[in-house]
Amino acid sequence: MRAYTPKDNVQKKPYYTDRYWVAPQVAKTDVSEDAVFAADLEAIRAKFEVLDAYIQVKQMVVVINAADNFGVIELMKNELEYNQLSELSAIDWLAKEGKFEIFYQMLSMSKRKRIRVKCKISEKESIQSVEKLFRSADWSEREMYDMFGVVVNNHPFMKRILMPDDWEGFPLRKTYPLQGDEFAQWYEVDKIFGKEARDIIGPENRDPARVDRYDTERFARLGHEVPRGTDISQGEPVTPLCYQESDGVFLIEKFDAEKSVVISDRDR
């Protein structure tokens, strides 16, 4: 029987897991420990619902409802002096809870503080663009759409940015295999030579470690070397392995202890 592989997350898994191992947590501290963050959180709480808030690795994380995202970012920009949106992207939690988590990494230069605003939307939902507030969101949101398929409303130019426009599938989803799916395999062949060339050219090899046993074009098969392009489907001659050293290995005949150096520093 074939081993079961989960289809909702095809990323690499550790081959050994200790079933009794409990992963430790990065410490989360209460927001009240930092006066600046506490004041910011109060200001956000006054107008919007805050689902969760804590400080982790010196940055405050605020979890809000996805519908409030524009309002919260606007408040932070205009009233709380968070003047830069350094980063914006999504995390794929579809396998676990059917949702995307979207985070906005904000920076306040006057307060020297960073806040991460997070919200969750389900796969079919879309989110409001913050491009009107920060132009940097223009490209970030396009990248988020490109990589995850999260649709952003009111964006001026909602189009793929890194992948080709006619690409199918969203590469950073956990369901997307590392070496590309069926579509990716044929993309360049179809595009350059046309679908009718599929039989002649074959799918693109996206696994750099794959060796085709009958490939005499690209790989020398140790012990079975034949000229390039030879048809070996009927079997090939065995070439005996021989090494340069077979006539005698290079040896030191006279060892001069005076001229040699003893390495004492083992660390290097």
Partner: peptide
């Protein structure tokens, strides 16, 4: 450990940031 971190450094080109979300794997 399980948690997330965003760390920014001043690379020659500007703010180079790494956001890592770890689930203890």
């Amino acid at each position: 450990p399980v948690g997330e971190v965003y760390v920014a450094t001043e690379s020659p080109k500007g703010e180079l940031g790494y956001y890592i979300n770890s689930q203890g794997d």
